[in-house]
Write a protein that binds this DNA or RNA. Structure first.
Lengths: 107, 107
DNA sequence: CGGTATCCAATTTGATACTG
DNA sequence: CAGTATCAAATTGGATACCG
């Protein structure tokens, strides 16, 4: 996270969410706080290892916070920070485009 | 490209541009038609092999067209299709976010 | 110039087992 | 439950050479 930032703003964004899994994690956290296990279910196809490493990296970039509840069994919750939440417009435009791309194919 | 499309519109979009290089190629082609060599220069850090394979896959998804001019030396131009161009709002929101993320760090 | 082919190194991922 | 550790397998990436 102490990487130097590229000059191009698009590249800055890519540096933080330029990977499929992060976008999907983001999509699901935009609906609200989720537990590790919930994310594992909702982000279809992701493995535990990959989910963990992406969450760690998103934590480092201050996109998500991780809260551990000292219970048995343990519970860990992930929540978007304000910065993380501010990515919503990007996700929204991706959703709009995907939807229209699909409609177009059905014509 | 005959892959089945996911139900989630965000995933559809990711299937087509869910990789760093495609986004950067897109960013540069939004400014207009470019030759292979120009892209290789403007997409900093990309290798010939990776540029070629991404352009092929974007062609298959109908995001770009490839035009070969039978000259010596040969010239090959890449242009966004209408569908490819319609991705602009996504790139725009990524640029806006990246810009604001950077400003925030400077405070 | 704009590729393709080949080979090899590096990175990423997957599967499984184990633990506080 | 939410991880970490480990090792093998698969995918991706770089370097180089060659071609129409």
């Amino acid at each position: 996270m102490t990487d130097k930032l590229p000059a191009c703003p698009v590249e800055i964004t890519l540096q933080l969410i330029g990977n499929k899994w992060k976008v999907l994690i983001l999509r699901d956290l935009l609906d609200g706080t989720k537990r590790f296990g919930e994310l594992k279910k909702s982000v279809t196809g992701i493995t535990q290892k990959v989910l963990t490493s992406n969450l760690r990296s998103m934590e480092e970039s201050d996109l998500v916070t991780r809260e551990v509840f000292p219970e048995v069994p343990p519970r860990v919750e992930y929540t978007l920070t304000e910065i993380g939440y501010s990515l919503k417009p990007i996700l929204d435009s991706m959703a709009v485009w995907g939807y229209e791309y699909k409609s177009r194919l059905n014509k």
